[in-house]
Computed example of a mutant assay.
Amino acid sequence: MNPIAELDALDDVKSLQRDNQPAVIRGMVSDWTLVKKAASGLPALADYLRSFDVGHPFQAMIAPSSQGGRLFYKPDLSGFNFDRLNGDLAEALKILEALSDKPNPPTFYVGSKKIEEYLPGLEVETPMRVLPSSVAPSIWFGNASVVATHNDDSENLACVAAGSRKFVLFPPDEEENLYLGPPDLTPAGRVVSLVDLQAPNLKAFPRFERALRNAQCATLRPGDVIYIPTNWWHNVEALGSVNVLVNFWWRD
């Protein structure tokens, strides 16, 4: 795999969009209070998030530890290898705290919750100065997990606030080499690759080897930001026992 290009700073997203190439900006949001609270440990992070909580219910995903963190299909593609739990932020944080001390915990994952709706006020403390204020952030959190290769029909700036995340990206024209799953049954609304990036079966998916030759990879730490262009495929692995990501989707 090739490394994703790194920038010293980001002053204008237009240049990134013109290049249509991913980029990593180290330490771009390291001054966020969210990042600093997370660095102090889970109790400080949980207290900080609870201070914005308005109690809206949402769904989380939980998968047994035997799945190795991968949120995916059952072997016969008839359903998924995880269950969905309904609850609120306080309950989710209790689960995350309980799992953080276990040596081989189940995977717990909360994806894409709009901050203005679920944690109003936090968006003021997670600014993205290179984007218009109308571009609203979303938050993702949980423990170690693997989200299968998928793409988005929007530009994306993703900011790691806690833990670390490994991103593997594929250009849009590698779609035919990614072996996509059923479009009418998806884990989270976007069609995903059937290839397990951690252990690709090249006998079953021989063209995936071509995709790997054009893949780009980077591991982000707290405060780092990655730009993912529209329709670029990305596999995301959260590596820590506590992980928080804030992202900004937008279309021109």
Rank of each mutant, 00 (worst) to 15 (best):
G87R: 02
G41F: 04
F141W: 09
N214T: 03
Y109R: 01
V130L: 11
P57C: 08
D224R: 14
L34M: 07
G240H: 05
D224Y: 14
D47M: 11
S241Y: 04
A204R: 13
P57D: 09
N231S: 08
F80E: 03
S154F: 13
K102L: 11
T186G: 03
I25Q: 03
V147T: 14
V244I: 05
A44E: 15
L71F: 08
V191N: 05
V244D: 02
L122C: 09
Y48W: 07
D76A: 15
G240V: 03
E174P: 05
P64D: 10
S40W: 06
E6M: 08
E123F: 13
D88I: 04
R190D: 15
D101Y: 07
S15T: 13
V124F: 15
M1N: 03
A63P: 00
R213F: 01
S133R: 14
N81R: 07
I62D: 00
A238E: 00
S100W: 02
S51W: 08
L7Y: 09
V225F: 07
L220V: 09
L42Q: 11
P132V: 14
Q216H: 05
P106N: 10
E209F: 01
L122T: 04
P183S: 11
L197E: 02
K94Q: 10
N81K: 11
C159P: 10
Y109M: 00
N243A: 04
N243G: 09
E209Y: 00
L212A: 00
P137L: 09
R18G: 05
V225W: 13
N81W: 07
L42A: 14
T230G: 13
G69A: 10
D252C: 10
V242Q: 03
E175K: 12
A5N: 10
V124R: 15
V244G: 06
A5W: 13
P200L: 01
P43D: 07
G27F: 07
A39H: 03
N247Q: 08
A63G: 04
W32M: 09
S30K: 12
F205N: 01
K36S: 03
G189K: 10
F82T: 01
I95N: 07
L45V: 10
D196F: 00
L239K: 06
D173I: 06
S134I: 14
L85Y: 12
V236I: 11
L157P: 04
S112N: 13
R210A: 05
S30W: 07
A63V: 02
Y73W: 10
S66M: 05
G142R: 13
H234P: 12
D11C: 11
V225Q: 15
D12E: 14
S15W: 04
T219G: 05
K36M: 03
S193W: 01
L77I: 03
I226G: 14
